[in-house]
Design a protein around this nucleic acid. Structure first.
Lengths: 153, 153
DNA sequence: ATTATTTATGTGTATATACATCTATTTAGT
DNA sequence: ACTAAATAGATGTATATACACATAAATAAT
């Protein structure tokens, strides 16, 4: 669906302003598509993101801060997301012995299993074939998004 | 900041997958920039969006459903956002006389004033000059985002 | 060594998101 | 006209976001 239909608006202040709205709308659309797949695993988009980040270092542990700085949405409240994952026994919390301020997080076997299963489904649904976009298009899109974030300051 | 630094990850499954993450990150970044400006008016990003939508029809009233279908994030809970705006006396609620199921929303003078003031500030901060992007770039970005949302189904 | 500052995490609060359900009203079907 | 279905909106619950603040531990400053 075109942006104009999606938000029922045809007049934009400029093409750049339209690109801003388009980016916001596309991100919402992407999150919705992904969340639908994750739902059958009882995972939210953000919980899945944390599990993925932990997997990246596995079998090493990670502290909360290291997880947080890898999150896509930086102001996510990681301790609270971990609360939910711990409740479902997908991760374990322990106090670091080296630095007792740190909480180190470990994926459980159950966490690995659910991550692998959900990643399989998500990859099937979100693989490159889903998108009518080739590698060249994606490269161009990536460079334009970087450009949008590059401000004068 | 480049995506790789922002989420401290260098290996992506594909350029398309990277574009997905890049879109999510850029949307978060844009929302953060805008919210910072809106904060001094005590408005959230979503409250501002509702005020803008109401302004689009002003001085006509709008029902909740019409506001909702113009929202960028479709699953926003519009009645509740209106609760907050009503509490701050920026909008008024009334039951439609034509269809008593409908609630019609009107901007108050105070709502118009705060919308205009915040839009002035936001435009100053988010105008085309802020972004290192010309109209041509923006057009290309818009077409690529539309393409990303165009799936095979 | 003692105090001040910084850092890592947790927690409290307001708002938003996502989704299910309830109520009132309207519309359609018979 | 009467009942069923659809629609508009409100509300409840769980989770997330945004941000302030609290606590404990580590580090720096004196």
């Amino acid at each position: 669906m075109k942006l104009e239909q999606a938000i029922q608006s045809t007049k934009f202040k400029s093409e750049v302003q339209k690109a801003v709205l388009n980016t916001l709308y596309t991100a919402w659309w992407l999150k919705t598509v992904m969340s639908k797949e994750l739902k059958e695993f009882g995972l939210t988009h953000e919980q899945y993101n944390v599990l993925r980040i932990l997997k990246g270092k596995y079998p090493e542990q990670m502290c909360v801060r290291d997880v947080a700085c890898r999150m896509i949405e930086k102001s996510s409240n990681v301790p609270r997301i971990i609360d939910r994952l711990e409740l479902k026994k997908l991760v374990k919390r322990a106090t670091s012995q080296i630095d007792k301020r740190e909480t180190v997080i470990t994926l459980t076997q159950s966490g690995i299993a659910i991550l692998e299963a959900s990643t399989r489904i998500l990859d099937k649904s979100m693989d490159d074939n889903r998108f009518m976009m080739n590698c060249e298009d994606a490269e161009k899109l990536n460079s334009l998004l970087e450009k949008l974030r590059k401000t004068e300051e």
